[in-house]
Design a protein around this nucleic acid. Structure first.
Lengths: 214, 214
DNA sequence: TTTTCGTAAGAACGATCGTTCGTATCATTG
DNA sequence: CAATGATACGAACGATCGTTCTTACGAAAA
């Protein structure tokens, strides 16, 4: 269906692959990995059941690819945000959390699937996803360690605090609803404030946020 | 197999029912609700497949009963702990979190299943579980609101902070491993400290905890 | 004793599962 | 032109699923 130069350029040639991945994401998000069938995926992608296997050799590979894409992009977003932030640990933490929260809000279903279906991955696919997740957590741990070293943070439990910060950001995927009270940016700033509180840093005065007054 | 007084006393008469529920919990925890089969449950309970249906009319009822039991006990533990605590909001919060963390550690699989498989409940069973979970969160919200009223907490986002406190306690089920660095009590106190930090309360000096020094 | 009823297990039901096979279409390659 | 290989679909495979049916055993009730 696409007129394109042969072989080399893969641009746009993956339209069907993308449609299948998108349908798999929706199916896994709605019914869970084992609750969704390949027939669900085929229906959502507008293709036939057997044709799925021209693009992915097995159902588990669909999940593996979804989770690899999601975790890699999350890691890339956070890495880029941190590299572009200031020197102070609090600034880098704020940048990381803003990127993290934005990803969860922009890709809520991906985040939810990555959180709850990663257990069904096996073998190398699982290791790859776990490695990406560890890399993300390592970023937070480094920022926290730097902040403790520089006296910005006073937490007695730096690594635990970092893990809980990640937990709070991930948990957004479980309760966030579009059009809610807080905008994506507000949610990011609120969670940055929570993170700084967990680290027992000195907090800036609260911004507008929510509550009775505005 | 049991010699017992007829009808009234149900003590011990539910041995098989308990065994089935326990096997279902292990199966759902290990493979997820849709990934585990009734044959897995029967094998784990040491009975036959068809005999399961003498105790539970459907697989979904197994999940419903498991989640109802878990959420009710969590709610009961927290309620009792709070009622036996002091008047200050910080004390009641500490008691609630200690009970909450203890439950998650004592019943990690139940907590994990309640967290990740509740989505597969339907109808009244789902509503009951959601109601119990809301009651639990309401306890936290009341404590936080009282603490804000009394000037103990300074958080600009009381309800959001309460929800995130619950998230942090629930998340323990996803990473806790028995025999870890912190005891159950230490973990509870650490999370109480995190909660107070989220609420922007004045923190007491850190206890022994972890880290280099002890 | 006879009846009843909770408990138990094996066999089988229809449905659905992930996956494979055979085949057809069609643009590109030689 | 013929050959190729990617793309596509219907049909069907064997396996497994949740559930039901049928029957049997044994203790309590009549």
């Amino acid at each position: 269906m696409n007129s394109r130069s042969p072989g080399l350029v893969r641009d746009g040639s993956r339209a069907n692959e993308v449609a299948i991945l998108r349908a798999a994401l929706e199916a896994f998000g709605a019914k869970g990995f084992h609750g969704a069938s390949m027939r669900d995926v085929a229906r959502g992608a507008g293709t036939s059941l057997s044709n799925l296997y021209n693009y992915f050799p097995a159902k588990s590979q669909l999940l593996a690819e979804l989770l690899r894409l999601a975790n890699d992009e999350l890691l890339a977003r956070i890495t880029e945000a941190v590299s572009g932030a200031g020197e102070r640990a609090a600034d880098r933490l704020r940048a990381a959390i803003a990127a993290h929260v934005a990803f969860v809000v922009d890709h809520q279903v991906e985040s939810l699937v990555a959180l709850s279906e990663v257990r069904y991955l096996a073998g190398v696919a699982r290791e790859g996803v776990v490695a990406a997740r560890d890399s993300t957590q390592n970023i937070y741990e480094r920022i926290v360690a730097d902040g403790v070293r520089d006296g910005e943070f006073r937490t007695p439990y730096p690594d635990d605090a970092a893990r809980n910060i990640v937990s709070l950001c991930s948990a957004i995927a479980t309760w966030y609803r579009p059009g809610g009270r807080l905008s994506k940016q507000d949610l990011g700033e609120q969670h940055a404030r929570y993170a700084l509180a967990l680290l027992e840093a000195e907090l800036p005065p609260a911004r507008s946020g929510k509550g009775a007054g505005r």
